[in-house]
Design a protein around this nucleic acid. Sequence first.
DNA 1: TGTACATCAGTGAACGCGCGTTCACTGATGTAC
DNA 2: TGTACATCAGTGAACGCGCGTTCACTGATGTAC
Lengths: 211, 211
Amino acid sequence: MMTEKRRRRPGETRDKLMEAALTLVGKGRHFAGLGIREVTRQAGVVPTSFYRHFRNMDDLGLELVDQLGLVLRRMMREARQNVLQADKLMDESVAIFVAHVEANRPFFFFMAQGLAGESRAVQEGIRSEMRFFASELANDLRRMRLVDHLSDGDLEMVCDLVVRSVAFSLTDLLSVAADDDVQIDQVRQRTTRFLQLIFVGAANWQSASLR
Amino acid sequence: MMTEKRRRRPGETRDKLMEAALTLVGKGRHFAGLGIREVTRQAGVVPTSFYRHFRNMDDLGLELVDQLGLVLRRMMREARQNVLQADKLMDESVAIFVAHVEANRPFFFFMAQGLAGESRAVQEGIRSEMRFFASELANDLRRMRLVDHLSDGDLEMVCDLVVRSVAFSLTDLLSVAADDDVQIDQVRQRTTRFLQLIFVGAANWQSASLR
DNA sequence: TGTACATCAGTGAACGCGCGTTCACTGATGTAC
DNA sequence: TGTACATCAGTGAACGCGCGTTCACTGATGTAC
């Protein structure tokens, strides 16, 4: 029998609630200002449903951080697959970053907000994702033998600065309209130049600061 | 007659309202979640007073951006007076930055929040302050003849990256306790190293990226 | 200097509304035997 | 395979409360003559 009765997938409402919060954030609302009734309204469920899945909005925020982590990991995987030549590393990586931001705007809005957000736990979660990202980047650079002259500590610092610079570009990217390709491209180029500058610094680091 | 009757200074309540909002933000609340009644309560005035001075919370936020501008300018002035030798430039500047953040925590909380905040106008105001800061920094570096080999465009980019890196350190600084001197000092050192790395990059920029 | 009037800033009462949260109820799904 | 029961997710009514905003009022300060 082909027409089986549609049954509710478990966790469906839960997903709808998280998606609803993201949608509102993507529309420019700040997560700290969202209310339970507002989110359930957007999700198309009754307010009481909320408590079946989350204790409060902070709780939902923490779950969003986890999902954000998945988005970032997907992005990293794609970058690894596409960046095979060292000379294209920065151009390609930034392009992939920008593409993922455009494809997941609400998530990255949430990330940018969360860094200075109200919930300490969310804040720490996002910072932890960034640390992870930086350390993975350090591994990759080591493996590509691009930074043999740097100590582990110095490499870690370089990667941290790279991740921060890219993260800051988020605020540029999110402040221009999603379809303003010209401006988006400007942000992309600017970010790439930041990274190039940092890598020139890294390439000359030991020699310039040897003690 | 020495004991003149205390008269209400004009604008006193207005100042109290802005200070109240800042206080709440300094306590960890997010500006986007503050309400009019909450702010007036903190200020010790009746809710209706609010409308004598501001149209809504966004309006108050914009005024705070202006005040933030003054704080930043004061900081810049102090840095200019104290940073006379080029070799101490970064150490001293970062130290002054950290000191001002600690002395004006609520203001810088507001700044960090506003960058990804709800009000487009506040966001743009803070970005504009940062641009101004970067261009002043560029002027100073030019005057000190430290960057003669850089084009105007490249210098602007370098200063932008410097300002961004320092601004990002805000989130580090604000996430540690105000009296945790050890951690604050770590952030200070880390930020200084970021700037050193960027300047090593700047010093080697033209030669490394000449086309 | 004094008087009359306009302006301004703060007040307290009141409004309707949306909020977070609780509760008892319902029907679907999973589990034990 | 069928039956009994427990668990789970969604519902609708209801609560008390704090919210933003309005209004008319008050008293102090500024201005004109």
